[in-house]
């Protein structure tokens, strides 16, 4: 146990983490590509047409995984930011910085695909309901984090300032997730939750989960490569 935890501490140093990140990133990138192909195949060729929405519902295979990632990456980013703030470890701040652009990207994808899904089904590109508004605030949080860090020249200070913003912004995550339960929204409730069986056909669910796994792998790969860049640029 003690030697194990020592080993992890050893990896927490940027110099030793660098080669490990390279190997991990390559594996995850391959996994992401394979999973995306499988997910898209299930989404377009195996999953049946939806009774209510016809083919328009197929946007779900990209919209829901992207929305999940947008929230999850923010939590991970805030976690690393908090660790960096509390223990003053160099790598933690780099992790938070590396996660932000990918998180912002998935937030934008969730909003974009949501608009393209809302138009044919709801009849509008955008409404200011609680779910959509809080997801837009998430995009601004990511962009604010990146802008703040870019505005401060000294990396360690940038990390600390960004960490405060990231930690305060975590409050938005439960608001996004529970908005459809707490308030009247145009956005429907969750089809998939831990509390009950998914309210969708099994193959539809499978397509969504595989796409989510692909986005996970993609995010890990991209973040690790970005951490490597940051290590090289800073050290």
């Amino acid at each position: 146990m003690s030697t194990d935890s020592l080993k992890w501490l050893w990896y927490a140093s940027p110099q030793t983490f660098y080669p490990l990140a390279g190997i991990l990133a390559r594996g995850c990138a391959v996994a992401a590509a394979v999973l995306a192909v499988i997910g898209l195949y299930i989404g377009f060729f195996v999953a049946p047409t939806d009774a209510q929405q016809g083919e328009a519902y197929r946007i779900i295979f990209i919209h829901v995984p992207a929305a999940w990632m947008s929230m999850f990456l923010y939590v991970v980013m805030a976690f690393w930011a908090a660790i960096g703030l509390a223990f003053n470890t160099r790598l933690s701040g780099m992790m938070a910085t590396a996660l932000a652009p990918t998180g912002a990207l998935f937030t934008f994808v969730a909003l974009w695909t949501g608009a393209l899904w809302g138009k044919p089904t709801w009849g509008t590109w955008w409404v200011w309901d609680a779910r959509l508004t809080s997801e837009l605030i998430l995009l601004f949080l990511y962009l604010g984090f990146m802008a703040l860090q870019a505005a401060i020249d000294e990396p360690r200070r940038a990390d600390r300032a960004g960490a405060v913003l990231a930690i305060v912004g975590v409050i938005n995550i439960p608001i996004i997730y529970y908005s459809v339960e707490w308030w009247n929204t145009l956005h429907q409730g969750a089809s998939v939750s831990l509390k009950s069986a998914p309210s969708m056909a099994a193959t539809m669910f499978a397509g969504m989960i595989v796409m989510a796994a692909a986005f996970w792998m993609y995010s890990i790969a991209v973040t690790l490569v970005r951490v490597r860049c940051i290590i090289l640029e800073r050290e």
Partner: peptide, 16 residues
């Protein structure tokens, strides 16, 4: 303005 609010259930037409 009239907007449709659909539910979170997705199923093939035969199941519906």
């Amino acid at each position: 303005e009239v907007l449709a609010k659909h539910d979170e259930n997705y199923m093939p037409p035969e199941a519906a």
